[in-house]
């Protein structure tokens, strides 16, 4: 249960981190581009890429949490 609470907390903190990164890095990055279409596409593409990284990060967390718990019980095969 503690593992899952920790997992949800890390997922939430990292989501907040993604939002901060979008706000402070990705959106200002596109401000220098003259074409509004290109700037818009860049913002959306980078934001979605960051979100995809967040999803992959969640699975990795769960997988290693599961592995560590089994090692603790001596059931690692």
């Amino acid at each position: 249960m503690k593992t899952l609470i920790a997992l949800i907390t890390i997922a939430w903190v990292s989501l907040i981190g993604v939002l901060i990164a979008i706000s402070t890095i990705i959106l200002p990055l596109a401000q220098g581009i003259e074409s509004s279409l290109a700037a818009g596409l860049l913002r959306v593409a980078l934001s979605l890429a960051l979100f995809a990284v967040w999803l992959v990060w969640l699975f990795e967390l769960a997988f290693y949490a599961s592995l560590m718990s089994r090692r603790g019980r001596g059931e690692q095969k």
């Binding site: 249960m1 997988f63 599961s66 019980r73």
Partner: peptide, 17 residues
């Protein structure tokens, strides 16, 4: 389930310990 390859689910993680 103690098997590594079995699906990971919320219920499995809740009952791990």
């Amino acid at each position: 389930s103690p098997r590594l390859g079995d699906p990971i689910t919320l219920v499995r993680l809740i009952t791990l310990q």
